[in-house]
Amino acid sequence: MAEDSEMVVVPGADGNFGVLAGHAPMISTVRPGVIDVYSRRPQVAHRVFVAGGFAEVTPDRCTVLAEEAIAVGDLNAAAVDQEISDLADDLAEAKTEAERAAVERALEVARAKRLALAS
């Protein structure tokens, strides 16, 4: 997805940051959360949920390489709740350390989805 926009708000690992044209070059990791794209402030044109990734900011562009991207409008509250309870069950059953870490990561993403719907 690519488009012209006035401002983008990206959920960085150390907190959300907004990017306007002419922003200093920056690379940041992205935590699971929602990207707000403003085509003209103060109206939000799109809200996209991403499950983490990387953002590269240059003065004339902002690129987000996401692991998973879903428009917030396409998220389904019931499905997300189901996912969270399934993952919680998995977590209780996880045996090895690696398994537990993988489930915890997935759970974090699912919780971020829930938050995205609530906001």
Partner: peptide, 20 residues
């Protein structure tokens, strides 16, 4: 990108590289 100003990093270069 080399000709432009150097990048800033958030959180830190090492952490980003370790993931990237």
């Amino acid at each position: 990108p080399r000709k432009r100003a150097p990048y800033e990093f958030e959180p830190s270069e090492e952490e980003i590289l370790a993931e990237l």
